[in-house]
Write a protein that binds this DNA or RNA. Structure first.
Lengths: 203, 203
DNA sequence: ATTATTTAGATACTCTGGTATGTGACTTGA
DNA sequence: TCAAGTCACATACCAGAGTATCTAAATAAT
């Protein structure tokens, strides 16, 4: 005995259908080459139906983008405990960029990074929550490093975390605009290594 | 005796009028809140006229964005000759970000950075030419530094230039998405200092 | 001078994301 | 059980970027 009425069940089916179809089409033809109408039609449903389930065209793969949090949760435990903060950050970024490159794909990331620019980030911009999560993860590593005296004393954990995450955003941005001339995993490695060298306490 | 016919003169006037009016409106109301129609109407001209002079709405402030090259040309000579490459880069970035912040404004930069993401950068993406110029400037400083033995030997000038310019792109991206919580001049200073520390040859 | 050609600009579209509103099947409450 | 309300979805629309096509005036060619 389900809690759901038959309407709710059908609605849920429609929503999932739209979601799956939308993601499939985005993957095949790229975000800008897929119309909301075409997604709806492919599901034998009207555009109006689409908009009862999703607020915007973007929303549909935000659903997918939210997977990134699931990725974080499953990836973090695989990071060795007995290495330096520096190593942890590099390990994490390598894993993250590999995931972005191989699982989510450049097109998806392009749209996410593009729409983050669209409006001044108000409280509930969807990029915020995964980003906030990412920031928290990096912040944790950084704090460990600060405690262990790995980093320059004059910088706070907040500042360091900001720079380290910016390093990642810059690399991802470059990956998108320079396209296949760049391998994001290689690039994050190079960039972060140098930045962390610069953050290192030098006695 | 001008080389131009009266038609060409009038057309040029119309174009300049559209350009000036467009920039004024963008500045007043923000790029997304200005329609091509409204620009045209404000010039007592049709939308069709707009599109004979410009390929797209974006084009209109690309014209302005090209000013950035003029800025480079006038700013470079003010950079002291007798300082290290590191200092030159910092000096240049400070000047550049100040210019972006105070003269071009965040809204303009937002649109530029946003549309750079729109399509895979093909040869003639408009961002390319100012960027290419910027890259060349940084590359020149970096080469000086490499020659002078300022930087880690294992990195090529190309790689270093890429990281240094990425540093800037990342900072600008952050400026846009985090809004007024960030001062771009301060941020580029912090970020670049750390990165350059990491690039420094350590004997 | 007259005809042919070019071209700045106007008009009337298309396309697409998103909205306002309508509707009929289902659900709920008395 | 039946009236009232809700909700998934449909239809018809709007706005705004960009395009295709036309026109009339200016220019060039004969």
């Amino acid at each position: 005995m389900s809690n759901f009425t038959s309407r709710q069940v059908k609605a849920q089916e429609t929503k999932e259908n739209l979601l799956a179809t939308g993601l499939k089409l985005f993957h095949e033809k790229g975000f800008d080459n897929v119309t909301v109408d075409s997604i709806a039609k492919a599901c034998n449903v009207s555009k109006g139906a689409f908009y009862t389930h999703f607020d915007s065209k973007y929303d549909i793969f935000l659903e997918k983008f939210k997977n990134i949090d699931a990725f974080y949760s499953s990836f973090i435990p695989t990071i060795p405990q007995d290495i330096s903060a520096r190593e942890k950050i590099l390990f994490f970024y390598r894993g993250q960029l590999t995931y972005l490159r191989d699982d989510l794909g450049k097109e998806l990331i392009r749209t996410v990074y593009s729409s983050a620019l669209s409006l001044t980030m108000t409280e509930d911009h969807y990029l915020t929550s995964p980003e906030r999560n990412l920031y928290k993860i990096i912040f944790r590593f950084v704090e460990e490093g600060v405690q262990a005296g790995e980093f320059k004393e004059e910088l706070t954990s907040d500042v360091i975390s900001m720079l380290v995450t910016r390093c990642m955003r810059g690399t991802i941005y470059d990956w998108i605009i320079f396209g296949d001339r760049l391998d994001p995993v290689e690039e994050i490695q190079k960039m972060t290594t140098v930045l962390l060298d610069g953050l290192q306490r030098n006695n």
